[in-house]
Amino acid sequence: MKTAFSYGLSGIMLLALLVTPFTFAQLIPSMELDDSLQTDPVLTKIAYRNPAIESIPYDWAQRYPLIAHALGGIGGYPGTNSLESLKRAYRSGLRVFETDIVVTSDGHLVLRHDWVAGSYPVLGQTVPKSQELGPMTLAKFKATKIQHRYTPVSFKELVRFMSAHPDVQLITDTKEPDSFTAASIFKLIVRETSEVDPQVLRRIIPQLYREDNFEAVSGVYPFKQYIYTLYMNNDSMDEVVDFASRNEIRVVVMDENKYTAEFVDALWKKGIYTYINTINDVGQIKRYMNSGVQGVMTDFVIPADLRRDASGYRQKTKIAGVPD
């Protein structure tokens, strides 16, 4: 594996949140957070088995080739963003997590792909009547199980988990290419994180979808790490390399249909890591990494899978989280 340089939301309600965020917050009933995210003794013990990776921006990319997509899959289901999938992935040695973030009707951040009708059957949930479609309240979201068994997670609960597990890095997926909306969501992310543990902000990695997202998001908070993902834009190779390099963004994520060895090499020459999404086949992962890709987003592959299938695998750094 190559080693690169180490560097450095709806409508009126949303507008109200932006104009008077703290006053608005006081109008929303407080919700009790799920302590199981924080107090699991097994997870807490594991957390301190490895050092925190929060001090050096992008250090995680040198050590962790796997990013848990939507907090990792569980029970054969991808994309649950659930408590159980988070715990499973963490126990399996994953330390870098990507999660979907949306806003509830009462203004809270929660982990869910979106509120459209098509997402309900994917999550094993009953599609609401058309007049009821749209964001749930936080209370309803928390009460609606995923696949009839898995626990939905609010953003604040995830922050509490990160506070208790200082080796966890979080990549956001807000799915908002519009810069005004992106900035709006990140104001909520910064506010909710600060209300739990401001130090966790150092380990939150915004995922950008268009070039103008960078100025919008960095204007909200001086994040030290970013990911530029390509599935929502049609930037050329040269445009991507120039933008990422100019703004010291050291990780680019692309789909397989945008991968070329030339693209990866051009990024590499500027000290930029390439990750591919979403790959669940160990053989494919190995082939990509042998061609210069730093790692992948994955639903089900865990570090031990790479360790078991390491023959002919040019791994120049230790796969973190897996004992030798």
Results as ranks from 00 to 15, higher is better:
A261F: 06
E262N: 11
E262F: 10
F263Y: 03
D265C: 03
A266F: 01
A266L: 08
W268K: 07
K269E: 10
K269H: 12
K269Q: 15
K270L: 07
G271M: 08
G271W: 08
I272T: 04
T274C: 15
Y275E: 09
I276F: 12
N277F: 13
I279P: 02
I279T: 04
I279K: 02
I279V: 15
I279E: 03
N280Y: 04
N280W: 06
D281N: 14
G283M: 15
G283C: 12
G283F: 09
Q284G: 07
I285P: 00
K286M: 07
Y288S: 01
M289A: 05
M289H: 12
N290H: 13
N290C: 14
S291R: 11
S291P: 12
G292Q: 05
Q294S: 15
Q294I: 08
G295C: 13
G295E: 10
V296S: 01
V296R: 02
D299E: 10
D299R: 09
F300G: 01
F300S: 04
F300N: 03
F300R: 02
P303C: 07
A304F: 02
D305E: 03
D305I: 00
R307S: 08
R307L: 14
R308H: 11
D309E: 13
D309P: 01
G312S: 15
G312M: 14
R314F: 05
R314V: 06
K318H: 09
K318E: 15
I319V: 14
A320N: 07
